[in-house]
Amino acid sequence: MNYDYQQIDDVIHSRIRTAIMAVLVGTDEAEFNFLKEKVNATDGNLSVHLKKLEHAGYVSVKKLFVDRKPVSKYKITSKGYKAFKNYINNLENIIRSNKK
């Protein structure tokens, strides 16, 4: 196979994180509970993965109160958008190189 495994972004390369990025890339911003429903993860698990993406600067979080309840809204950053685009390009390269 003709690809460099080092090009695969480890931050995105996990089922849950890939799913989170795929949801966020199509939205302006999404609430924690929405992401939880979409990626089918538990609160704790999702929090860990979101923290990882946040630390990499791929997502940003906005915390607010709605009806006195804390709400976290997540948004993909431009750095995250570029990284996700690269990640998809790499996946496509892998598929293409294998088909040759």
Binding site: R15, T18, A19, A22, V23, V25, G26, T27, K38, I88, L91, E92, I94, I95, N98
Partner: peptide
Amino acid sequence: AELEVSLIKKMMEDTR
């Protein structure tokens, strides 16, 4: 890789 791409497409389509 193909599986990942199809998962990404599905998630993006759902959000669309």
